[in-house]
Amino acid sequence: MAEQEGGLVFHPMDQFIVKPLFGGDELHWYTPSNVTLWLALTVLGVFLLLVAGTRRRAIVPSRTQSVAELAYCLVYKMVEDVTGKEGLRYFPYIMTLFMFIVFANFLGLLPMAFTTTSHIAVTAVLALLVFVGITALGFALHGMSFLRLFWVDAAPLPIRPILAVIEVISYFVRPVSHSIRLAGNMMAGHAVIKVFAAFAALAAISPVSILAITAIYALETLVAFIQAYVFTILTCVYLKDALHPHH
């Protein structure tokens, strides 16, 4: 795949390789890897923004504190608007998800960075946490009547069983689409940037290539935020189903 021909070097997927941080071939489950490093940086980034940035608890906020408050209010309003007042109990979990994804996405845009959210293992865990958590919450709150989520009362009786089958399928497809949407977006954008970067080695097309990288980078900056937002708002929508399963 990655042959060197005439100065063209394509390694668009190498940036996604998981490798031990301190050398060696062995990658055990506990080995500190580049994943560990970038996850730690993500946590550090969130800490710096939300904790260090607000340490003065100013009534008139500094710029960092304003951003922290903005993030807080964005997610708080989202949870309140989508799920209603009862959903606010789960606000810390949703805030954790949002801050994690948005910081992982933006840190991944740094040159030479490793994008943790481009890995299906990471996004699948996030999506499964949401899926399992919300399903368990639905049964805990409503018992067996949570299953009425799949029984569309508004539809005519004969087609309700068919709708129920469709609803069940769509319910189980949720974590798949939820996780692949995020990982796919992250991976595709970064890979495309790498491909254009490889073309930059050819003098004739390097200006075009650099322009293209700039454009894609701008787009990816947008995508980094939008995908974090989409992941969070979908979590809220699913949470609403668990809180109010009756259509």
């Binding site: 990658l27 055990h28 489950w29 506990y30 890897s33 994943v35 293992a121 865990v125």
Partner: peptide, 8 residues
Amino acid sequence: FPNQIFWL
């Protein structure tokens, strides 16, 4: 995967 999931 085990490595990523653990650290995640």
